[in-house]
Amino acid sequence: MIRVEGLTKRFGQKVAVDHLSFTIEPGYVTGFLGPNGAGKSTTMRMIVGLDRPSAGRATVDGKPFAAAQAPLREVGALLDAKAANPHRSGQAHLRQLAATHGIDQRRIDQVVAMTGLDSVIGRRVKTYSLGMNQRLGIAAALLGDPANVILDEPVNGLDPEGVAWVRHLAKALAAEGRTVFISSHLMAEMSLTADRLIVVGRGRLIADSTVADLVAASSGVATRLRSPQAGEVAAALASPDVTVTAEGPQTILIRGLAIEAIGHAAAQHGWVIYELTPVTASLEEAYMKLTDTAVEYRSAAPVPQGAVR
């Protein structure tokens, strides 16, 4: 279990993490979402004690990470793909980490096999692709068979097969009762991987919820109706509690009325219905909506064609 209480990090005038509080429960994959620069990596770095909080505290299973008797068994962390000396072999990198806790070669071989690095483990890390670096980082994180797994952007640089592998790995680790905390700026991936989500923007907590709740809360449940009599339907259903918006000449979006009630009304009035579907926003839309005001770096409006010569 990872608990963060009032965690704050200031870099000079800039507040990177602003009174963040949340708890990551064991047994779930918890996604950590936010735009670039939202403070995700800084938060993770404070949890494992790389950065010192300006205020607040972070604990792992009830105590600060630095106080752990066996840090590698408590937390397996991938904080950056480039956390191995490029002039050393992957094997030597894992060996030196294992040596700190007296972990034997058998366990090293296990994590190497688990991450599919068998054929390249003797090579120097500088010859690795970004994907291999990620796998080495994950192998290092799993070395101590940790109860808590923290992965910062683990799918960066992985091919689709690797992305699916990380997803299955994360779910399998959580199913064993581990606490799994994964940061990403890719909503689509998180919606497939995570059970719960912590969303941050500009260092502040925006949402702490399940994926389903987040999508529902953000979109509001709506129903799409397509009918040649769309105008008539809109007029008949309109009330202070119900909002109807036009999506097209024959398509309307109805909010505030259960889909069953719309069906009954249609039968009652004898409307011809082509389509009646529940609409939920994708996690991506929900996320965009949530972080809209919290994006730190926004691209300027596209340059009109022909403006640049």
Partner: peptide, 18 residues
């Protein structure tokens, strides 16, 4: 949410310490 009940937390199978 198919999860191990809270409290049944995973314990590392390795017996090594720093």
């Amino acid at each position: 949410l198919t999860a191990a009940p809270v409290g049944q937390q995973y314990r590392s199978t390795l017996g090594h310490e720093l």
